[in-house]
């Protein structure tokens, strides 16, 4: 991507983003940049709107205020047709995999190619086998999604996400609910795909260890704001108590273990 027409080094740039769901403010004037060719992680506890952020970047949700530029285009100013063109250059890996359950692994990976290209079946076959080989599941091509383990489903979804050779991939909680071996495989895959395919990766996650192992840069989100950013090493040494609690997984700290509630004793002794 070095010879890209735009001198801009950031593939995604978000400025002043605000978004609320009902009365709840999910983002409050968030700005962040995602560099081309890098693995950028967006971390934070569950419920901070990390997935919402990916949906905003993908144009599935519209912000209340602020702008999101992807590859130089303002996502929310695009006409539907232009937005769909842009999405062909974004891959997204959903937490659930989001495989089409009525199609085999092979057809799932072939799906974007069949929808968007007029390639002959023989070439699609070659491409599908290459993509499946890259995630180590060439042998599983005849299986149906319900015959796959969680880790395998996510790898098939990854093969499908790279089917159209996108510029960037967004990973939504790629490590959640995976056994250690699958986690290891995904960590390895995300890193190696990013280098070999010249992608840009955005990982949304709360698995500190796995993410820190592969991310070039990390943003930590909480309460609708960015409360920390830097390389994994910088964050480990951050002097923010909150970032420390998150990175080390302490049960109590600036984020309390208890959901806000009236005094315990009063609550127990109170009559209905």
């Amino acid at each position: 991507m070095a010879n890209s027409a735009s001198p801009e080094d950031n593939i995604v740039s978000i400025s002043n983003l605000s978004f609320s769901r009902g009365p709840r403010k999910i983002f409050d004037a968030v700005s962040l940049e995602i560099q081309r060719g890098k693995v950028t992680a967006i971390m934070g506890p569950s419920g901070t709107g990390k997935t919402t952020l990916l949906k905003l970047i993908g144009g599935q949700l519209a912000p209340d205020r602020g702008q999101i530029h992807v590859d130089g285009q303002n996502v929310h100013r695009l006409k539907p047709r232009e937005l769909y063109e842009l999405r062909k250059r974004m891959g997204m890996l959903f937490q659930s995999g989001a495989l089409l359950t009525d199609m085999s692994v092979y057809d799932n990976v072939a799906f974007p190619m069949r929808e968007h290209t007029h390639l002959p079946e023989s070439m699609i076959r070659t491409l599908v086998l290459m993509k499946l080989h890259a995630v180590g599941l060439r042998g599983a091509r005849h299986l149906m999604p319900n015959e796959l383990s969680g880790g395998m489903a996510r790898r098939v979804a990854l093969a499908r996400a790279i089917a159209l050779d996108p510029l960037m991939i967004m990973y939504d909680e790629p490590f959640t609910g995976q056994d250690p071996i699958s986690k290891g495989a995904l960590v390895h895959l995300i890193k190696s795909l990013n280098t070999t395919l010249g992608l840009t990766s955005i990982i949304v996650s709360h698995d500190v260890q796995e993410t820190a192992a592969i991310a070039d840069y990390i943003y930590v989100l909480s309460g609708g704001k960015i409360i920390g950013q830097g390389t994994p090493q910088e964050l480990q040494q951050s002097d923010s108590e909150w970032v420390q609690q998150f990175m080390h997984g302490d049960a109590d700290g600036p984020v309390h273990f208890h959901y806000s509630a009236p005094d315990y004793l009063d609550d127990l002794l109170a009559s209905k």
């Binding site: 599935q60 999405r87 959903f94 989001a98 089409l100 968007h116």
Partner: peptide, 12 residues
């Protein structure tokens, strides 16, 4: 199961 959403993100 996010299949519709997944399709949208695949520009379908």
């Amino acid at each position: 199961t996010e299949q519709l959403s997944g399709m949208e993100m695949m520009a379908v």
